[in-house]
Computed example of a mutant assay.
Amino acid sequence: MVKLVHISVRMMTKNFERITLSDIDAICHACCTYDMKPLSKEQQAKLHLEYGEKDFDLKLSKNSFAKYMPDVKVVIRKGYPHCGYMAAHTKEYVEEIETFIK
């Protein structure tokens, strides 16, 4: 497992090294400019939303949840940053996602 983690970390590092400022601008634009529309209950039932308590955009996102996705059960991981829980508890996270998909 340690070797696999080491390989993954090296791969991620190499990917980060390739990102240009133009790439970052494009990612930020894609993540911050979209036209949200209210989702049907059927669409909401297919969503799994998860945030860390320390996620940089959690406060702003909570407003969107209430307005556009009021029936989605949003998971907020206490004490974790963005993607922190899934990185620290990968096995448990995968099991939760598999259960959700079923």
Rank of each mutant, 00 (worst) to 15 (best):
K91N: 02
H6I: 13
K14T: 08
K54C: 05
V2H: 04
A30V: 04
P38E: 07
Y68V: 03
G79S: 06
H89V: 04
P81T: 10
K67R: 13
R10Y: 04
K14Q: 13
S8T: 05
F65I: 08
E96P: 02
A66G: 05
K37F: 07
K91L: 04
Q44T: 01
A30G: 09
I76S: 06
F16Y: 11
K91C: 04
R10M: 12
M1Y: 06
K3E: 06
K62Y: 02
L4V: 05
K59Q: 14
V9Y: 10
F56H: 06
S61V: 00
V9I: 12
A87T: 12
P81E: 10
K91R: 11
E96L: 11
E50F: 03
L47K: 13
E42A: 12
M1S: 08
E53M: 01
D25Q: 10
S61C: 07
K14H: 13
M69Y: 13
Y80F: 15
Y34G: 08
H48T: 05
L39H: 11
F56T: 04
F100W: 14
D35N: 08
K54T: 02
E53S: 03
P38A: 05
H82Q: 08
L21N: 11
I101L: 14
V74R: 12
A26I: 07
G79H: 03
K59T: 15
L39R: 14
N15W: 07
H48N: 06
Q44S: 02
T33D: 05
Y80V: 01
D25F: 13
Y51P: 00
G84N: 00
L21G: 15
C83M: 06
K102R: 12
D25W: 14
D71F: 10
C28P: 01
I7N: 15
I101R: 04
I97L: 11
Y68H: 07
E96C: 03
D25M: 11
H6T: 08
P70S: 03
I7H: 12
T90K: 06
H82R: 04
V5T: 10
P70L: 02
I97E: 00
H89E: 02
V2M: 07
A26S: 15
L47V: 11
S40L: 04
A88S: 15
K102Y: 03
M36H: 10
K37G: 00
T99F: 02
I76K: 04
K91Y: 09
F16H: 13
A45W: 00
K73M: 08
K59D: 15
V72F: 13
Q43W: 01
S64A: 11
T13I: 03
L39P: 01
R77V: 09
C31P: 02
K73D: 13
N63G: 04
L49R: 11
T20L: 07
L47A: 02
L47D: 09
Y51H: 12
A45S: 15
P70R: 03
S22V: 09
E50T: 12
Y85D: 12
V74N: 09
H29C: 09
H82G: 04
K59P: 07
H48E: 07
D23Q: 09
C31V: 13
T20K: 10
